[in-house]
Design a protein around this nucleic acid. Sequence first.
DNA 1: GCCGATTTGTCCGTATGTATC
DNA 2: CGATACATACGGACAAATCGG
Lengths: 240, 240
Amino acid sequence: MPKAKYDGIYHSIKKRIEAQDYPYQSLLPSENTLIEEYACSRNTVRRALAELVADGYVQTMQGRGVRVIYQPVGKTTFTIGGIETFQETARRNHLRAVTKVTKFETVIATEQFAAESGFSEGDELWAVQRVRYLDGKALILDINYFLKEFVPGLTPEIAANSIYDYIENTLGMQIITSKRRITVEHATARDENLLDMGTYGCVVVVANQTFNAAGLLFEYTQSRHQPDYFCFQDIATRKK
Amino acid sequence: MPKAKYDGIYHSIKKRIEAQDYPYQSLLPSENTLIEEYACSRNTVRRALAELVADGYVQTMQGRGVRVIYQPVGKTTFTIGGIETFQETARRNHLRAVTKVTKFETVIATEQFAAESGFSEGDELWAVQRVRYLDGKALILDINYFLKEFVPGLTPEIAANSIYDYIENTLGMQIITSKRRITVEHATARDENLLDMGTYGCVVVVANQTFNAAGLLFEYTQSRHQPDYFCFQDIATRKK
DNA sequence: GCCGATTTGTCCGTATGTATC
DNA sequence: CGATACATACGGACAAATCGG
């Protein structure tokens, strides 16, 4: 993994913020100080700082400095969302993750589905349906559609592990951008059948379009979440 | 409004993408071409492109070019919960927006509330409860807490219009960063009383911490949405 | 209120590396 | 292999905001 200089600086500062070495509400050392500390140019420091701003870790103030606005998250916080894979989420929360493949077939995109998903009519797709278990509870129903042309050789066995692992490591394709839409729907009979619905009659639906490194749409996914364990976090920064 | 050069270039390219002058899946002119076109330096073009990447409009590919991945949204799309304010959403969808203030008081942050909201124990806060109506339906229950010290002179009358208008235009305070968390909860008796709950027994809760230009937390808000009209959109880009 | 020092914001030019075709 | 295109990094210049004296 070749690491860019700015990326190292970014991670270094990030760590120090998380360790509360630079505590909440304090000011970071000035850019000039950081330049000396990391022996680099101003642009390089500024690039690292820009990433921290995007992460919601700090906020820059012209003429004043850079303020830390990161607060450590409570340990009860459970995040599903981000481009994180299901596996990564499970590991981070120290939970046992199991995936069961409940459907695996090939379909052709209809006009209607093309409009919903962003694929073109007639595209050949893998349709994979999987149930995700965390600590024995069926919490997420994933319905993935992959462009067959881009994901050759997919099997139910691969789907039972990590499709993303296969795509990134075996096929060597890189995932770059992902557009998401979050809504709430009534639970369908299928949801009730496959998920441990608990006391809710609805599911949180995260619809996802994924683009590969060539900028081509190759995946459309609906993740239907049991509401109890759904939490999505986000940072918004205002543009001037 | 003083406009930076990169910002002008950003908007110019964005417009051309939205007009499908640069259509979906096409490549933008190369950086060198854009440098000539806009008579600027490489850094300036790249800064504009970086913003378009962050917006999910384009995706850069080393050695190949910059691909447009923006697709025009269907006009049926209805978003509450994005960056837009309630008023803006209403206007865009040609709906009548009404706000009713149901509570307006001063409270002191308890230890427990401080932990939840990020304020400090003992902080003096305005507590404002408002119901948002769209086309006559009560869809959102907003519960705002403002640091009194930072938002002096707040009145129920101002709350009935736009508090943000007051903060930004009258007080001249700028809002910079906002941290959001989206979860789903069972509807409480209060929700049932104040909102037109429709067929759902739950609400989508958007919890929000807002920081001003000095990097200080001055607002904590819970927006409780009736699920029918809730939609949240988002772009995620993966880091290398 | 002014001035100077400090700090971040914008912009430029250049050089080199790396991926694609 | 060379040409093209984006990625990283450096150094310098000036603008704009803030703060203290």
